[in-house]
Design a protein around this nucleic acid. Structure first.
Lengths: 348, 348
DNA sequence: CCACCGTGTGTGAGCGCTAACAATCCAGTG
DNA sequence: CACTGGATTGTTAGCGCTCACACACGGTGG
């Protein structure tokens, strides 16, 4: 049965010292791998530790060293695939570095919630924090708050004076858009994410830039909230435009800002009797595990979330150790994954 | 710019005491809401705290109170929708109770990884932990390990001597199976999850029980690994059976153990030219956000992950406070969500 | 008028650890 | 053979906080 060990208080360093017949300082030295300890002494101490089941008290250590060896993570919606994957990458990286990761999830993205979260982390003495705050408002709040420890952002440092790691969203969007144009489409429609999200803005920007470079006037941007339902609504609108004939730009290709919305778009098109990719090609962003099994399998942009997590921990540690070189922005490259939803264009 | 405050060490309680012209103990009393402090004194102290930007040092507090006010969470694959949602629920609940949540993710589910994770948490002095370890092997390892703090499981306490919270998986499976039979199917096929997962076993059990209660001999169980791809393979097998004609039990309905695999099954059926639900009805489990937009929208079982998270924190705190009444198993009820993938059976 | 009590406040000890310094030992050196 | 210096170990002083206790004060009751 799993219970706390008897109310006996756990052994202290002094207990180990007594058991091993040395001073507590020697125990401390053994534990921290100090070189100047005779091998035999070291063994005695190790044996005593083993025998007593001793474990260093992290609170006492933190008190005297002023280092909690804990870092905080602030995540907005860890239910979404992206944040969840980043989180997982972060955890692993931090643990490898000997840090404990404490996570705080934000109910809403509001500036006040973020302040509370930072407070919560500060109260527990984290040495630094990673903020997975892809909303513009959150990042601005972060820049304003100036917490008592270094903060690194994930997907949020654009143009602000905060170090961070992000995927090259714009490049991802460019890859998709170029791909669609190369497949023979006259133009590419776009279903964007929420306006407040930096990722969303960057994706829209990449899409727009490519079209303009090709001398194409970008069609009106449709907008969703990342959810499949919002994609569905956008899809209905696209379907209407596609069927209405050539009012404006022809609807033969759409770049949807994430895979979940793309699923909704696909559904709406199908319901309207529009075939994908024959009549309208659709591409997404994220490469969620389901994407390869959508009807049809979705062309999308893969993000290396593990790398992002790892890099951000690395960057944060540099700031904690004070070895950071200014305000750095690390950019991770995305990868285009071409699947059936954009293949074999009708008129190509 | 976000940086640690100057190398000046942060103010201590003694600083506040001096500033307010009282003793450090009075400051402590104010901070912990002790009643016997004169109102004017309290105000002076509060003002001094404000002025200095003072903050209690949690390490010092933890050292003397022997309470870290931190709880650990061990999660297996926080990328999956279920664990991620549970995690989110946990976080919120814990924070409301004034606890910090430290998460450790398990690379693999192996017993050794779990031991490492517990060690990691123990090293930081968590007061208790929630283990989201839906695999049988993990739970068994947990039962064997007996860590120095209370542990509560989520989806893992079945039959073992560990308190825990779980969804009534069996009931969920029963609801689905009953629903499919009620729609007129002669029998229901089943695509199970990995054998090692308790959730998978319970779902299979519920399905089997219902069939047997109806005097139906359960068909052979197909098995996947929760991924869409494995569902796709299972779907191909089902499609083969469906088209081969009536060798054994007719394939007109399938209960797939999670939504992601169900997506794969749907795809395989579609590719084989089998219509859903007209020829084969399909139901899933989890109600991931995408489920309502599958082709066709998926009948599934919804789990209230937030409730599960909340209840498990509650249970854990009871064990930490010592007010727990034995080894309790809390069961949360699932909800059947009927959508198009099982509606309008051909022969009904 | 003094023992008694409750309220408000201060004092001292110590939580378990690390860092700085002091002490000891022993080999090598002039 | 005292003398130096590195290796090894011990001693002491806190880190910042809470707990237990002591103390001061005014009001009661006998």
């Amino acid at each position: 049965m799993i219970r706390p060990t008897e109310a006996l208080r756990p052994p202290t360093m002094a207990d180990v010292a007594r058991e091993a017949g040395v001073s507590h300082q020697t125990v401390s030295r053994v534990l921290s791998g100090h070189p100047n300890v005779r091998a035999t002494t070291r063994e005695q101490v190790t044996a005593a530790i083993e025998r007593l089941g001793y474990r260093r008290n992290s609170a006492a250590r933190a008190l005297v060293t002023r280092r909690s060896r804990t870092i905080g993570v602030i995540a907005v919606d860890p239910t979404l695939y992206g944040p969840a994957s980043t989180l997982a990458g972060l955890q692993e990286a931090a643990r490898d570095e000997g840090y404990l990761v404490s996570t705080v999830t934000l109910r809403s993205g509001g500036g006040h919630a973020l302040e509370d979260a930072l407070d919560h982390l500060a109260a527990w003495g984290v040495e630094g924090a990673v903020a997975i705050t892809p909303q513009r408002s959150s990042v601005q709040a972060l820049a304003r708050l100036a917490p008592p420890f270094p903060v690194v952002t994930v997907e949020g440092s654009h143009g602000l004076d905060i170090p961070g790691v992000s995927l090259d969203q714009e490049l991802g969007a460019r890859l998709v858009t170029e791909h669609l144009l190369a497949t023979g489409h006259e133009t590419v429609w776009h279903v964007a994410g929420p306006e407040d999200w930096l990722e969303s803005a960057a994706r829209t920007e990449g899409w727009r830039a490519v079209l303009e470079e090709h001398g194409i006037r970008p069609p009106r941007v449709l907008r969703g909230d990342w959810s499949p339902l919002s994609g569905y609504h956008a899809g209905q609108e696209l379907a209407g435009l596609a069927l209405a004939g050539r009012g404006a730009a022809p609807v033969t290709a759409a770049f949807v800002a994430n895979d979940q919305m793309a699923l909704g778009v696909l559904r709406a098109l199908r319901e309207a009797g529009i075939r994908t990719p024959r009549q309208v090609a659709v591409a997404g962003f994220d490469d969620i595990p389901e994407a390869g099994f959508f009807p049809p399998p979705l062309t999308t942009v893969r993000q290396d979330f593990t790398a992002i997590g790892r890099r951000s921990i690395q960057l944060l540690l540099e700031h904690i150790e004070g070895t950071a070189s200014g305000v750095e922005h690390i950019v991770v490259e995305p990868q285009l994954i071409v699947r059936a939803s954009t293949r074999s264009q009708d008129g190509a």
